[in-house]
Structure formats: structure tokens, C-alpha cells
Simulated scan of single mutants.
Amino acid sequence: MVKNGWVVYNGHLPGTKFKDFAEWIQAAANEKNIQLTLIKNNEMLALHQQTGGTIFPEYYRRPDFVVFGDKDIHLAKQLELLGIPVFNSAEAISLCDDKIATYQALSAHHLPIPKSIAGPKIFPNPRALETASFIKSGKMLGYPLVIKEAFGSFGEQVYLVETEQELIEKVVELQDRPFILQEFISSSYGKDVRLNVVGDKVVAAMKRTSSNDFRANVSAGGSMEEYQPTKKEIELAIAASRAVGTDFAGVDLLFGPEETPLVCEVNSNAHIRNIFDCTRINVADWIIDYIVEKLQEG
């Protein structure tokens, strides 16, 4: 019987979004008579030595499972090495956290995505930036195009560039930060769809719209409304979640030409308050039910 677990969240980030997610998961577990302990990632450190790896301090009761609401991939991996089931897995979080890795996985599974080019590795403070490859990439993708930093959240590290000159200037600005160049899907300007996937089900969906930005993120000022996804959108969201190995995820879809859905991102640590406010569906309940089912099966 599943009796206790942990929810790990980041202890250094400002604001309450990440703790809020942890508290929602905790409340859903309590409804199932499962005791969940909230733990900041910096309160529990991984120790590596000749005798093996462990977690310290060790005063926490060993859990039946961990819901990992953070991107501290090394800590998640250490918990797995100790034989503790972790949702989502360290590998899934790693693939979602790095947008280049995300698109590699999606394209390897032949899922529809915007045409994307991974920026080459650039070391800090290059003496001279080689621009020929970026010029070629711009001609291939067309303008305007989108530049996404590989690591970023809430749409804050996503840029729309209109010209070749703007492209080079942005690349110079980014320097050694990994990034991806991507074709701009004009048919989805200021609008997208967030589908919350748990296991092999889409449990909630909303459409996000912005009237003054090509990005539709609610955190960037976009509005939201309940949305009934099509069969094709549901199948694509589930396939995208499987491609990166998530147990639960927020999958963002763009409206491609003729309303053909395209995968924009897969979020392993998607916050669930906004979609509850929009749909009144508590995704945390679905997550806990899924975890209990998986643990009972295994």
C-alpha cells in the first residue's frame, strides 16, 4: 500500500509558483490518505563517496515515491539510484528542460514540429563569431524567425527576429548560451493550446491568447479559455509526452497551416493552478491517481 511520499521543489527561486505546485500535489495525496512531505532541493543534498552515493541529512523517512517538481536533475537521478520511484524521471526532466534535446526526441519520433536548427556550441568570449552558418540558417527558415534559448521558462527566453542583422545581433548577445533557431508559425501568432497529459490521457486543456505578443504565455500577459481539443491534438499531445518519457506533462501545441497542430514544447514541471482556474479540473488529482496505479502495478 502506498502510504508516504515526497514532493521536491526548488528552494532558491523567488515567488510561490513552485511551492504552490507542491502544495497542490500534497493536498491531492492527502485526499487519498497518503502523507506527502514537502522538501526543498537545497534541504536534501547528494553525497558521493567510495562507499556509494546517498542523500543527507537522512532524517526524512524513506518515501514510497517522489514527485519531483524541480529541474535539479542530478538530485532526481540520485533518488532513482537509491531505488526510489521518481515522477517525472530524471531523464524526462532533462529532455524537457533542454529545448534542443526536446526537439531531438520529437523529431526522432517523427512528430510534427516547427522546422528547427540547433545553434552550434559556442564557448565564452569568442574572439570572432562565425556568422556564415547563421546566415544560411536564416535563409532556410525564412524571416521572421524565432530564437529560443535552450534553457528557459514562461516564454521569457524566446525572441522574434525580423531580419538577418537582428539574427546576428541576437546570436552575439547570447554568445555561449545554447539556443535553437526555429521557423515562425505565423498562423499561431499570439495563440496556442496547453494540454495537460497524465499517463495516456489528456485530462485538461485550455487555449491561450495574446493580443500584443507572438507568445501566448499567461505569465506574459496572455488570456486563457477552456478548450476542447480535437482527436488529432489529443493523440499528438500524448505522443509528445511519450517521446520524452514523461508520466505527466503540459504539452503546448501551435496552430499550424490549415489548423494542423504542431508541438511547441513539452513541460515536465507544468504548473497546474492556471489550468484549474480556467477549467476547474485539478490535474493534481489525476497525477496522484496515476502514481498510485503505477506503484500498485509495479
Rank of each mutant, 00 (worst) to 15 (best):
P114S: 14
P112E: 06
A108S: 14
E130M: 06
I93H: 00
L79Y: 00
P112S: 13
F68T: 05
G119R: 08
N88I: 01
I100L: 13
I84Q: 12
N88P: 14
A92L: 08
E149I: 04
A108M: 10
Q157Y: 05
P144T: 00
L145A: 13
I113C: 15
R127F: 13
I100Y: 09
V146D: 06
Q104V: 14
K121S: 13
S153M: 04
I100S: 14
D72W: 02
H74I: 01
E80S: 00
S94Q: 11
F134K: 03
K121Q: 13
I73Q: 03
I147D: 07
I93N: 01
L145D: 10
P124E: 10
K71Y: 02
A108D: 15
K121D: 10
G142N: 07
S137I: 02
A132F: 08
G83R: 04
L81T: 09
A76T: 03
T131R: 11
Q78D: 04
V66L: 09
E130D: 15
V146I: 15
Q78F: 01
L111I: 11
G119N: 07
A108Q: 12
L106R: 10
D97M: 06
D98I: 04
V146L: 06
L95N: 06
A118P: 15
L129P: 01
K136G: 02
F151L: 06
S107L: 10
F68H: 08
D72L: 04
K148T: 01
K115A: 12
P85N: 10
D72H: 03
L141T: 08
L129I: 03
D97T: 09
A90Q: 03
S94M: 09
I84D: 08
N88G: 08
D70W: 06
L79V: 04
N125A: 15
I135P: 00
Y103W: 05
I122W: 08
F123N: 14
S89N: 02
S116W: 03
P114H: 11
P126I: 09
S94V: 01
K139N: 13
Y143N: 11
P114T: 09
L141D: 05
S94E: 14
E130F: 06
T102P: 09
K99R: 15
A108F: 12
Y143M: 11
I84S: 11
I93R: 10
A101F: 13
I93P: 03
L129E: 09
L81H: 15
A118L: 08
A108K: 14
P85V: 10
F123A: 15
H109W: 07
L82H: 07
T131F: 01
Q78P: 01
F87G: 05
H110M: 10
K115F: 14
P124K: 15
G152D: 09
A128V: 12
Q78R: 00
E130N: 10
H109K: 05
L129K: 03
C96N: 07
G119D: 01
V146C: 04
I135D: 09
P114V: 04
V66N: 04
K115E: 14
P126N: 12
P114E: 14
